[in-house]
C-alpha cells in the first residue's frame, strides 16, 4: 500500500515540512468544527450530528455572499470582501445553529436519551437535502479568492510553499480561538457555560438561565463552524451539498481524540487528525485516507475513551 515510494517522497525533509504545513492548515479547520461538537457534548451530552452539515451550510452561505460582493457590488479588495463574508457568514450560520437547537433539540431536553440523536440525524439529512434542493447537486467552484504565497526554501527543485491562504487560515484560527478562549474563561457567559457543564440543575437553582446558555453554546459552535466553512471554501475553492458529513465525522473524531468536553483538546485533536490525514495521503494511499481517520476514531474510543486531555471517569456503582 505504500504509494509514496513511487513518487519518491519518502524520507525527504522538504516533503515532510510541506505536508506539515498542509496538515496544520487542514487541522485548523477540523479544530474549529470540533469545538462545536465538544461544547455541545459538554453541556447537554449529545453528539450534535448535524454540526457537520451546519459547517457545509456556512460554506454555501459564504460562497453566495462572496459572489454577491465581488460580482455585483464590485468590491475589489479581497481582504475587505473576505472580512465581510466572514462576519456575515458567522451571523447567518449562528442563526441556523440557534434555530436548530430551538426547533429540533430543545423540545427533547430531558426526554428519551436517543431522541436528540435521532432528531440530529434528521436535521443532518434535512440540511444536506435542503441545500441540494435550493442550490443544486453539482459541485460549486469559486473563482480563486487568494493566490500566491511564500517559498520557504527549495531543495533539488522541490519548493516548500506556504500559500497566503494557509497563512490566513492558520492566522484566523489562532486569533479566533484566542478570542473564544477569553470568552469561555473570563466572561459571565463562559462561567454560566462551564457551570451548566458541571451540573445543569444546580446552575439553574443558582439563577443561571440554562436554556439561554445552551442556545448561546449552539450559536457559538455554529459561528465557529462558519469560520471553518469560510476557510474551507477559501482553501479548496469548491463546495457541494454532501461536504458536511465526512469533515463532520472527522471533526468529531478530533473532539473525541482530544478528550470530549475539553476545548484545547478539540483543537489539539483537530491538528492531529489533520496531520495524520495529510501524512497518510502523502506517504501511504490517498484512497484510504478516510479509512485511516475512521480507524483512528475507533481505536481512540476503544483504548482511550477519555481522549488526550479529557478527564477519565470512574464508573459509578
Amino acid at each position: 500500500m505504500i504509494r509514496g515510494a513511487a513518487i519518491g517522497t519518502d524520507a525527504r525533509m522538504d516533503v515532510f515540512v510541506q505536508q506539515l504545513i498542509n496538515g496544520l492548515t487542514l487541522g485548523s479547520i477540523y479544530g474549529l468544527i470540533a469545538i462545536g461538537y465538544t461544547m455541545v457534548f459538554g453541556i447537554i451530552g449529545m453528539v450534535n450530528f448535524a454540526h457537520g452539515d451546519v459547517f457545509m451550510v456556512s460554506s454555501f452561505i459564504a460562497l453566495i455572499l462572496f459572489l454577491i460582493l465581488t460580482t455585483w457590488l464590485g468590491i475589489s479588495s479581497i481582504a475587505l470582501a473576505l472580512l465581510i463574508v466572514l462576519v456575515l457568514a458567522m451571523a447567518l450560520t449562528a442563526l441556523w445553529g440557534w434555530a436548530i437547537e430551538r426547533i429540533a433539540y430543545r423540545p427533547l431536553r430531558g426526554s428519551f436519551r436517543l431522541a436528540p440523536l435521532i432528531s440530529a440525524i434528521g436535521v443532518s439529512i434535512f440540511l444536506s437535502n435542503f441545500v441540494q434542493v435550493a442550490q443544486g447537486a453539482r459541485n460549486k467552484p469559486t473563482p480563486p479568492m487568494l493566490s500566491g504565497g511564500i517559498t520557504l526554501f527549495e531543495t533539488d527543485g522541490y519548493a516548500v510553499f506556504l500559500s497566503y491562504k494557509q497563512c490566513l487560515i492558520m492566522g484566523v484560527t489562532v486569533v479566533l480561538l484566542t478570542g473564544f478562549w477569553y470568552l469561555v474563561q473570563r466572561t459571565p457567559f463562559g462561567r454560566a457555560q462551564r457551570a451548566c457543564e458541571q451540573d445543569r440543575k444546580m446552575a439553574a437553582l443558582l439563577g443561571i438561565d440554562v436554556d439561554r446558555t445552551i442556545s448561546l453554546t449552539f450559536v457559538l459552535g455554529a459561528a465557529l463552524a462558519a469560520v471553518a466553512g469560510v476557510l474551507y471554501l477559501l482553501y479548496y475553492g469548491v463546495v457541494s451539498f454532501s461536504d458536511g458529513f465526512v469533515p463532520g465525522v472527522k471533526a468529531f473524531t478530533a473532539a473525541v481524540l482530544g478528550g470530549i468536553g475539553s476545548l484545547p483538546g478539540a483543537v489539539l485533536g483537530g491538528l492531529i487528525i489533520g496531520l495524520i490525514e495529510t501524512f497518510w495521503s502523502a506517504y501511504f494511499s490517498i484512497e484510504y485516507k478516510d479509512v485511516a481517520a475512521f480507524s483512528i476514531l475507533a481505536i481512540v474510543l476503544i483504548f482511550m475513551p477519555s481522549g488526550i486531555l479529557g478527564r477519565a471517569d470512574i464508573e459509578k456503582v
Binding site: S119, G122, V123, I125, F126, L127, N129, F130, Q132
Partner: peptide
C-alpha cells in the same frame, strides 16, 4: 428533505 423533517417532527 421531507424525510429528515419527518424524523425531527416524529421525535418532537
Amino acid at each position: 428533505l421531507l424525510f429528515g423533517l419527518a424524523m425531527v417532527a416524529m421525535m418532537v
